[in-house]
Amino acid sequence: MKLTIKTIMIMLLLGTVVSCRKSEGHNPINDDPVPPAVVTGVSVVNLPGKAKITYQVPNDERLLYVKAEYVPTSGVPAEAKASYYLDSLIVEGFADTKEYEVKLYSVSRSGVESEPVVVKVQPQEAPIWKVFKSMKVLNAFGGFNITAENPSKDNIGLIVLSKNKFLEYEANNNWSVFTNVDSILQKIRGLDTTLVTLGFLVRDRWGNTTDTLFQDIKPIFEVQLDPSKFRGLALPGDAPQVTNGARLEYAWDNRLGWPYTSFTHQVNGGPQPHMITFDMGVLSKLSRVYIRPYPEGSRWYFLTTMKRFEIYGSENPSSNGALDASWTLLGYYEVVKPSGLPYGTDNNLDQTTASAGFNWEIRLDAPRVRYLRIRCLENFAGGTAQSINELKVYGDPR
């Protein structure tokens, strides 16, 4: 059979491809049966929930990596590996401060292990216990709040246990939180005011858990205050509204768009923080204030929308308009633009977030008040004027 040069070239290329494919895979680099030298000079630094093991890497060309084998608190065997370029590795997954045995192996390029070097570790208190000890559960309006500190920023689950239909405690995934932030705040809302006992524990990614804290929870009663009782109150120092239709009372009229909005006049109001004041008509323990920004041009929210502002409350304010002892600061607030885009540019997330409005919680230890005052420190345009398309107030007026 005659073979053309073209046919020969194709066969050679196919042979090369087949040869390359045969070399693929995770087979040992060679079949050398000799184990590599062991690590030496081993030292241990115990850390929260883990330990760092440092060693001297043997000068052995057979060595590929160093492996640690151990059994952490969960009882499930674990291992950690480090390349021969490194001189340390981390063993983790410990939930207590007991002493544990770790076996270090040198592993060759052909997968042969050395004899183990046994070392003892005794981790410090695991991060889940720091979270658990700092955890606080407080009754809130319509639910409860969970706060905790996670200074090491470990991945943890703060698990809430509630009773199922069989009256057995099980994890409530809707109320639990899984996070690695350093300061944890979980707010549960929409609950009845009946007394309920819940369990709280902390779990790490290895399945270790803390003890369970059981606590009685009784959400605080909350309703929307009747806006028909609201009345504008122009005190000395309050900023004037714009003159082409906007009025303070439009902030709670349940109508959207222009001119049904409260909009203060930047020039006539001056460069100082702009304030508005109104009477809610009833003395109440407040829970939150809902504010929907005004969309200029029908969709651009982050213009005269308040960026930084304060809310004050009073039972009987001074007639001179001063923010004196007759007023109590109920909270300082800051609006964060979700996209982080520059001024004058909103994306769909910005518009969706702002059109839904923002709920600003009042601190739980605030006194009962009848009058509210909103003070704009800065808007997104860089001024101090404020625009509020719709406002609702929630709390307990009983």
Rank of each mutant, 00 (worst) to 15 (best):
T4I: 05
K6H: 14
C20Y: 11
E24I: 09
H26R: 07
P28C: 03
P35S: 08
G49N: 11
G49M: 09
K52Y: 02
Y55D: 07
P58D: 04
R62W: 00
Y65M: 11
K67Q: 15
K67H: 07
S74P: 02
I90Y: 15
A95V: 01
A95P: 01
Y100M: 07
V102Y: 01
L104N: 09
S108H: 06
R109F: 02
V112Y: 07
S114F: 03
P116I: 08
Q122S: 15
W129S: 12
K130E: 14
K133V: 03
S134A: 05
F144H: 09
D154C: 08
D154R: 11
L158W: 01
S162A: 07
Y169M: 09
E170T: 13
A171M: 05
T179D: 06
S183G: 00
Q186I: 03
K187V: 07
L191A: 08
D192Q: 07
T193N: 15
L195S: 15
T197R: 15
F200G: 05
R203P: 01
D204S: 11
D204C: 12
W206Q: 13
G207C: 14
T209I: 14
T212C: 10
T212L: 10
Q215Y: 05
K218R: 15
P219L: 09
F221S: 12
V223D: 00
S228M: 03
F230D: 00
F230R: 01
A234Y: 01
A239V: 06
E249N: 10
W252A: 13
W252I: 10
L256M: 14
L256T: 15
W258M: 05
T261I: 11
T261N: 13
H265I: 00
Q266I: 05
N268Q: 14
P271Q: 11
P273Y: 08
H274K: 13
M275K: 15
I276K: 03
I276Q: 04
I276R: 02
M280S: 09
S284T: 14
S284M: 06
S287M: 05
Y290V: 06
Y290S: 11
G297F: 03
G297Y: 04
R299T: 13
R308T: 12
F309G: 05
E315Y: 04
G321P: 05
G321V: 02
A325N: 15
S326G: 11
G331S: 12
K337A: 12
P338E: 04
P338V: 12
G340C: 10
L341H: 13
P342H: 07
T345F: 10
N347W: 05
N348E: 15
S355F: 03
A356F: 08
A356P: 02
N359C: 02
W360V: 10
W360Y: 15
W360Q: 12
R363I: 08
R368N: 13
I374S: 03
I374F: 09
A385F: 00
Q386W: 02
S387F: 00
I388H: 04
L391S: 08
K392P: 00
G395P: 03
